[in-house]
Design a protein around this nucleic acid. Structure first.
Lengths: 192, 192
DNA sequence: CTCATCATGTAAGGAGTTACATGATTGG
DNA sequence: CCAATCATGTAACTCCTTACATGATGAG
């Protein structure tokens, strides 16, 4: 159910079409909550049906149309309510650590490949999250800038501080995963 | 698709009924891959249909029956193939960091509660994982002991080493999450 | 005899994945 | 005029969740 709140988080800054939303999404919340367009468009329709957002058809060129969505007061309330309610944690389902626990069943080569892939995977995430962190600190993230424009002065510091806090946590996690996999490679060397 | 490999990992040690499997599961692989019985029983049926395991009906008392499953050679091969193939990573979907990034929209109280809950959540996991780690090192984990009984001497060290490696990683992750949330609480204090 | 535990599920629904489908507009 | 990108989806499928359902056996 977090997808709709991720979408609301973006739409609360200002109205967007599904297409623009999806682009913004990929460059902001998408770093913590992935969603493909095939999920975003239907979810927007559902949210409209539930009264959280409203879409207006806009003409574009001769025959083109696009739906521009804005958050309704109910949608705004729903977002704040969600923010103030306890978070539902997902059950652990960790394929990498599952595999790591049985790595003796893999060939030494495959074990090595697995750990290298793990490093590559998290280095990819790390790059994303570090990039975001840089944009947050330099105020060059377009979403954040738009957001700060609609934020009262005394709230700006908080807004930035929490974003930095969130992404710092992600960066640390990526670094920890990489360090862990490197230790695994060392372990493989030791075990021969 | 990892569930079936998690189940195979346990069944490879020796035949088990769905019920026993489910119990063992909760105390071993369940720490990295959660699955309720309502998912385990049907998955076992599917795995049987796919020829990875075979179930034998055993009588129990007067009218009671239970199906005891064992891994077929195909099942064994499937497990090893999976272990040797690249792991499919799931897309990031992290409700906690999503919320953290927008914590300025929560009331200060709710923000505090969120971080306290986060700490409690990960302390719960930490306890589980640390417990497992202790059982691994003291060789008091029943699954591991049974596993070592069917493992060649020269493979025992590897078997234990990888389990320790996996759970150490999980413990570190839990500690990092807790440390992160504590820093969040400090940040809240500073922001007033 | 009764309660804990053994034993095995089904049913309905939500969330997410992958692949496919279609057409409009704008810049070069 | 042609390619990039704008724009919005559907369809089929798997996986997971939640809640419910049912009955047998063994220990005290």
């Amino acid at each position: 159910m977090s997808l709709r709140y991720a979408l609301l988080a973006i739409l609360r800054v200002g109205p967007l079409s599904g297409y623009d939303l999806q682009k913004q999404f990929a460059q902001s919340v998408g770093h913590v909550w992935y969603a493909p367009d095939s999920q975003i468009y239907p979810e927007l329709r559902k949210m409209e049906r539930d009264g959280l957002i409203e879409g207006e058809e806009q003409v574009r060129g001769e025959r083109g149309v696009r739906r521009v969505y804005h958050v309704t007061p109910e949608g705004d309330r729903a977002f704040v309510d969600w923010m103030n309610s306890p978070l539902e944690y997902q059950r652990v389902r960790d394929p990498a650590h599952l595999r790591a626990a049985y790595l003796e069943s893999a060939s030494p080569d495959a074990a090595r490949r697995f750990l290298h892939d793990h490093i590559a995977e998290w280095e990819g995430e790390l790059e994303q999250w570090r990039g975001e962190l840089t944009h947050i600190e330099a105020l060059t993230n377009p979403m954040l800038v738009r957001r700060l424009q609609v934020t009262a002065d005394d709230e700006r510091e908080r807004t930035i501080a929490f974003k930095r806090f969130a992404y710092e946590g992600l960066v640390e996690r990526a670094l920890a995963e990489i360090a862990w996999a490197r230790r695994g490679l060392k372990l493989l060397d030791e075990l021969g």
